[in-house]
Each structure stands twice: as C-alpha cells, then as structure tokens.
Design a protein around this nucleic acid. Sequence first.
DNA 1: AATGAATGAGCCTTCATTCAT
DNA 2: CATGAATGAAGGCTCATTCAT
Lengths: 230, 230, 230, 230
Amino acid sequence: MDTADLKPEDPEDGGGATRAVRKQGQNGSVSRRLILDMAAALFSHQGFTETTVRQIAAKVGMQAGSVYYHFESKEQMLGEILSIAVRSTYMAVKGSVESLPIEATPKDKIKAAIRAHLQSLHGNFDYTATNVKYQGQVPNVVERAVQPDRESYTEYWNQLIAAAAAAGELSPDLNLPFLRPLILGSLNRTINWYDPGRGDIETLVRTVLVLFDGLWSRAEAAGSEGGGST
Amino acid sequence: MDTADLKPEDPEDGGGATRAVRKQGQNGSVSRRLILDMAAALFSHQGFTETTVRQIAAKVGMQAGSVYYHFESKEQMLGEILSIAVRSTYMAVKGSVESLPIEATPKDKIKAAIRAHLQSLHGNFDYTATNVKYQGQVPNVVERAVQPDRESYTEYWNQLIAAAAAAGELSPDLNLPFLRPLILGSLNRTINWYDPGRGDIETLVRTVLVLFDGLWSRAEAAGSEGGGST
Amino acid sequence: MDTADLKPEDPEDGGGATRAVRKQGQNGSVSRRLILDMAAALFSHQGFTETTVRQIAAKVGMQAGSVYYHFESKEQMLGEILSIAVRSTYMAVKGSVESLPIEATPKDKIKAAIRAHLQSLHGNFDYTATNVKYQGQVPNVVERAVQPDRESYTEYWNQLIAAAAAAGELSPDLNLPFLRPLILGSLNRTINWYDPGRGDIETLVRTVLVLFDGLWSRAEAAGSEGGGST
Amino acid sequence: MDTADLKPEDPEDGGGATRAVRKQGQNGSVSRRLILDMAAALFSHQGFTETTVRQIAAKVGMQAGSVYYHFESKEQMLGEILSIAVRSTYMAVKGSVESLPIEATPKDKIKAAIRAHLQSLHGNFDYTATNVKYQGQVPNVVERAVQPDRESYTEYWNQLIAAAAAAGELSPDLNLPFLRPLILGSLNRTINWYDPGRGDIETLVRTVLVLFDGLWSRAEAAGSEGGGST
DNA sequence: AATGAATGAGCCTTCATTCAT
DNA sequence: CATGAATGAAGGCTCATTCAT
C-alpha cells in the first residue's frame, strides 16, 4: 500500500520490557519530542540504518545511553515518527475536507484532500519524508505498529474515491484499483524531488490538479480547484 | 531530480588496486552477472545497508569472500546495478520513441515514453526498484558514478517535454519546472505499490495516461493513446 | 634517521568523528593506560600487524569492541605508544644531562646521555622496543604523528655532538654525519639482544662506553665515565 | 642473539606437503629466484606481514596462484630469503678474513670482518634488510629453519673474538658476553639508517672502526685499519 | 607452468544496547 | 535523568592458499 496516515496522538506505549516507561502526563517530556525531532531529521536525510543512536543523541546534546531512558529502541523511535507522520497527514486531510462547505462535491473533496496532503507532506518534512522514503522497507515490528494508522488513512481515501465514483464524477476509463495508490504515490513522491526553487507548494498543488484533470469524467469542464484548506 | 537514466557504458572504474579489475563490459563472467542479479534482488527488497554481502554470496552459492574476486566493494555492486537500471530504462524509452512513425507528434512521443518507462521499470524490477527506492540516499561515491547516466535520461525527458511545449500541445496551466519530476516521480513510485493483482502493466499504463489527461492543452480532445511501443 | 624521541605532549588528535575523544593528556582513565600497556607488550613482542585487537582486549580482560571506546583505532594506540616511548627517553636523557654539575664537559654530557638512553630503553622495554623495532615501518599516519617527537630528540643529540666537536673533544677521524645515527643505532639495537643473563644494564653501559672510546680525540686519556645520572 | 648468518646454498628443501617440488637441477628456476628477489624487496620495505603474495606475484608479472608452484608458502619464501641473507654475509666475512695474509692478527681479522659484514649488508640490501629488521619477530617455523645458519655465523664471530681475547688484544674493561651482539648489533642497525647521502660505505666502515677503538687494549696505539678485503 | 576462481578463516571496526553509579 | 564504560553480535573486507583446467 502507498499511503501516509495520521490521526491524533494517543498513549500507545505498548509496555516496553525494560524501563523507558516515561511518567509524563499524556504527551512526551520535552526531551522525548526533541529526540524524536532530531531522529526524524536524521532518518529523513540519511536513512534509518545509516543513522546512529549516537548521532541522534549528539544532536540533542546527550549521551547515547541516555536516549534509552526515553525510548526502548531505535526502532521504537522510528515507529513513533512514522505514526506521527501518518496521523498528522490524516488529520490535516480530514480536517480540510470536513471544513468544506456543505455543497462540496466528492470532486471538491478529493481536490481539497490532494492539497492538504501535499501541504502536510512538505510542512512536516522530516517526519513525512521518513515515512515516505521508508515505505515498505521498515523493520517488521515497526511496520506492524504503524499498519493500523496507515490503513485508517488509506481507507479514508478509498471512501473519498468511492464517493466520487458513485457520483459519476470519475472518468470511466480509469482502473479504479490503481487510482488511490497512483494518486497518493504521485503526491508522496514529491518528497523526493520537490525543491522550492522550482515553485512554491501552492503552485505544485495547482500543477498536480491540472495534470490530474483526466480524473474527472468529461461531463464537466476542467475544474478550477478552490477549497484551499488548512 | 527524480529520474532513472541509461546510456552506454562509461569509464567509471574506481581504480581498485588489487584484483577485481575486469568488470562490467559486455563479457562479465557468468558469476559476475549472477552476483549482480542476486544483489539487486536483495537490495530492492531489503535495502542496500540492510543487505549483507554474506547474504548475496549465499544466494549465489558462494562464500562472502569470493564476491570480492568480482567486485571491489559492496558499493561498487550498487553502482553497477544503478547504472544498469538507468541505462536500460533510457534505452527502452528512447528505442520506443524512435520507433514511432514519422508523423508522431510530441504528445505521441511522451505517451510512448510513459509506456516504455513503466514497462522497463516493472520489467527489470530488481534493478529499477533498487534505483527508484534509493534515489537520493545512495552513498556519495556511488551517486557520483551514476550521476552522468541519470542526467542523460533526465535531459532526454526535458527535450520531449520542451518539444511538446513548443508545439503548443501542453496545457498552459502547468508549471513547467514541475512537470518532468512530477511525471517521472509518479511513474517511479509505482514501484512501491504496483501489484499485478490490481491489473496488468498495460492497464496501469492506460490509467496513467487517462489520469494525466490534464497534460494536454484543451485544443485537442482527450487522447485515447494507442501506440504500444517496445 | 635512527632515534627515539620524547618531548611534551603535542596536539595530534586525529579528529575522530565518533567517540574516543578524550585520550591522552594527564588523566587517561585507568583502562586507557592499561590497554596501552598491554598493547605495547604485545606489539613489542609480536609486532604491530601480528597483534590482534582481540589479543589486546583479552589481556586487559575486556571485549575487543570495548577497546574502541578508548581508542579510535589500533593505529592510534601505536601512535601513542611511540610517542610515549620517544618522549620518555628524551626526558630521561635531557634530565640526566641537565643534572650534571656545571663543570661538565660536552664529553661528560654525551656519556651521561648514553647511559640515560640505555636505561630508559630497557626501563620501558615494551614501549621503547615497539618504537625501536618498528622504526621506519610504521604506518604513514602514525609516522607523521610521531615525527615531531622524533625530530626533537634527534636534534637534541645533534647539539650534544656538535658541542663536543666544537670543543675539540671528538676524534677528527670520525665522519660526523654518521655519528649520531651510529651511536643511537648501536644503543637502540641492544633492544634486540640484551638479556640480563649476560650482565646488568650498568655493565652494558660501561662496556658501551669503553667500546666507543674511539669517539674521543687522543688528546685526553681514555675516559673513565662518571656522570651517573637518573 | 643478534647476527646474520651465511654459508653456501645447499638443497634444504624439506619436502613440502603439496607440490612445489620444483624439479630444477640444484638451483632454482629463473622464476624462483626472481620471485625471491621481488619478495625480498617487498619484505625489506614493507615488512613480511604487510606484503601480499599478490604484490609479489604482480612484481614478477604473474598471478598469485602461480607463486605456489614455486613455493609452498609465503613463510617458506621468507625462510629462504633469511637463509640467503645469513649465508651470503657469512661467506663474505669468512672469505674476507681468510684472504688476509698469514701474519694477520686477531685484531686484523675482526677489522676485516667488520668491513666485510657491512659491505655484505649493504650490498644485498633487500635480503639482509629483511633479515635484520625481522630479527626475533619471525614466525616460529621460519626461525627454526634459519637458526642453524644464524648459529654458524654467530659461532664464527665468537671465535674471532675469543682469539683476540686470548691474544690479549681486547680491552680488559669490556664485558665479553656483550661484545659480539653489541658489535654486530651496531653494524646491523646501519640497515635502518644508512643513507649514501651521508657518505659511502667505506667511510662508514672507517668511522665504525674509529668509534670502536675502545675495543683494543691500550698496549697498542689506535689502529688505522688496513685490510680492505672482499 | 600458470591462471582464474573460489575458499575460509580472521581482522578491524561499528553499533545498538545495557547497566551501575 | 544522565553518563561512562562495556558488551557482543555483526559486517565489510583481506588474504594465504587450493585446485581444476
């Protein structure tokens, strides 16, 4: 599957074997989030395996061993990063779609979703890039942990598309099973090449919406997208 | 940049001091290519760093040390795999485009290129997947070696697009600088999710061509592509 | 050149990227010096290349990997051992010479230097033996690091000899450029054969001083050496 | 012990386990000696362990495997090199001493021996340097093989010295057991530092003889050495 | 004689992880 | 909370050596 999920942060500790049971209220201590940020920055640029716990610790200003007070393992860090990435994008997209006016058509919703997805992607680069680049190559344990998040988001898109199809808004020449992964894959891949030098995100959004014009059934004219969410 | 190149053989030795001096070329002992195949299979599924030379050797049925009779380093293997991936796709695309009838328009050429790219991608999965998934995270030495190949292919696409633009065939609403990476990125990303269970490659090609219908300027009707090249 | 230097601590870090940053200096955790001692013992008896980091670690009672918490590389260990060897001998010699009475002649000084050199050599066998035996076959990186130390000591001897020559105390039949390396070489080579069973160090010193009697110009009688420093 | 032996070349194969039983008459095939020469050159400059069989083969212009047609092992090569070194020096020294006029005193003989030793040392640098530098750090198997050669030469010097002592020609202040190793050690160590730039071998010889003037009992005047043998 | 290809043991080094303080 | 020190399992790579051709 090719997605990137989201959803709010819930406890989800999992009960580590050792300590690393942080006693925080419901969020992570400052250090915890800081570590995650640094890890995400490193993972997204060098890759997970290529990143050393020592490097992460160094960027935070602590010793490698200290990291283990906050996390059970390097993999756990990755898992949390992926979850955050997926959930935050999910929330952004969902929020954007739901804030559309009542009259919004499925087509409008998909357009809004595309915009929100791209914005979230590039707005949380370190996290989402880690997610996108490692799609499918993540250690099993971790993958299993993020899977539910991924599926939620995936399912959300499936519904958006199904609704459009039901409304007859989608071009009949499209092979539906390919649609969601094709769209999300195209968007996600921008992580690999997007460079502000070529144009800003909004321009990217517009170009994508134009390029994807074949999505829509010929009944309607080319759509001038409008719902700038987020 | 987001591409996958090709082109004939470059020097690119690396100047090893010891053995492993013969190498690619058109000969390449049987073992050599076999090793490369196994390495590509492993790299594309587990990632470069996650793959052990011992694993590669095991798949070939030899000892880890023996691999070093054929290659100077694990990185050199990666380099050759990437080159093969990029070059073979380039040649496939170029060949496909050039075999179009004289009357072929730039639009026809781009469509043929898209089809050939997708076919090459999924027809040499292990090699191209290694290339696509590692885009931008490849060790410097290796990246430097493949760069020329990448650029050649990139440039080829730039020309295809420029020609279409010059011919007024492209939608004026598109931000040109985004176009090539967006298209190639979308195609390349299929490596991450395409599954024959959802439909065959030709169906994928058709869906992509429909989806990308927004590429073309509204002067013409939506194009039902036809020229199955390659 | 054939020498064995000494002198105070130089920068000479090497700039490791990871840990093992603290190092020499005046602290040096207990382990650190212990490792060095064991390494020197092994190096001096088996040679650098022939000695395994695992062997060193075993002698210290730790795991091979643990050694790398204290040193960046096996070569770094060698470098420090050589430096210690050279510097300690230098200091011993210099100290000995400087503690001679004011009236001491250049000849007296050379004699004292010979005695101190031999004493230091055999008093820190593992370190100095490593240095002497590896003279000229040390890895480049290491050699470069110790070079300044070597040169300081060499220079010190050059001055001692020059002073004696200026005072007309040296036999005119000697080819000066050969003198220092010849003397130091003779002394250093004792590392390869000296065995307490044949006589103690002081006896060795006296024999050397007698043997080298040709050093002195015939104006004076054979010298009964006196300045027993250290 | 600190020596360097000699003696004519005798079969001394040893009966290898594999092949490498060369069928030559009584000397080695051309290749054989060539390989030895290259090995000696490499060993003397980089050290035994640091030298690769592949390097040796490369200098000879053959493949690593081919070397094993001529030698059973790298160690065997070293053994032969050491033997050659020791024997050739022995022969040179012995020949030089024996060619002295009948009236030659023990003192004359020792002087001639010193000269011949130095000449042989520097006249067969690659071989003798390998021997001198590796004194005492040679693999057991090899050491055992060369030991007889070393002892012969050592014994020869012992006799020269004993004769001089018996003749009352040696200074009574010398500790006899130190004498031979001290002298030979001094001479051998020149291998580590001698550089034609500082003066030629003959000058070196003269300087050594002057320096060692303390050898002789004061009954006689300082000796101006004369018997330039070889 | 010589080579190409492979073996297998071992080496240096890295790194996630642990744990007493 | 944090650190210093150590562990132990691997991993990439080297190299003497073998052997069929």
